[in-house]
Amino acid sequence: MGKLNKDIIFGLYDDETDLLSAVESANHDHMDIYDVYSPFPVHGLDPILGLEESRIHIAGFIYGALGTLTAFLGMTWIFTKDWPIIFGGKPYWSVPAFIPITFELTVLFAAVGMTVTFYIINGQGPGASNPILHDRISDDKFCIAFDTHSVDEGSAKSFFEKTGATLIDKKHI
């Protein structure tokens, strides 16, 4: 991702408990949070941030179905139309024998498709560089970030001081 051209003001908290209560008080004050960053998934954060449930599993289902069809229809076409061969006196279209490969390709398509989708919608991938607000976010700090376009600096600062942020900083991303 290139430059977003945003001025971000952010505060770091030492514990996820502080983070959760800070997010709640930001909701209470109707402050528009740009994003929240943490070193591990914080449970209970999604509903108060208003994040909808991820729909990545729906994508997974579609990829999986595609894998099922590819395998089953592919083998069907090959063994009944393209090059029918009799193996051990069995029918050309021997459905039970197609099941293992159909299953494997279902899993393969679903897993690969979902993982690739995951990185694309996250804007991530080999060599991708997204702005990092602070080096300790991937270590032990929990971060709330405001875009200075929607929340002015003064109120953001007093919010961070009020909610117990241990570090307040600005960054142009």
Partner: peptide, 12 residues
């Protein structure tokens, strides 16, 4: 891969 630790990313 440019991981940031964003809440939405963790959720996904």
């Amino acid at each position: 891969f440019g991981w940031t630790g964003s809440a939405k990313h963790w959720q996904r």
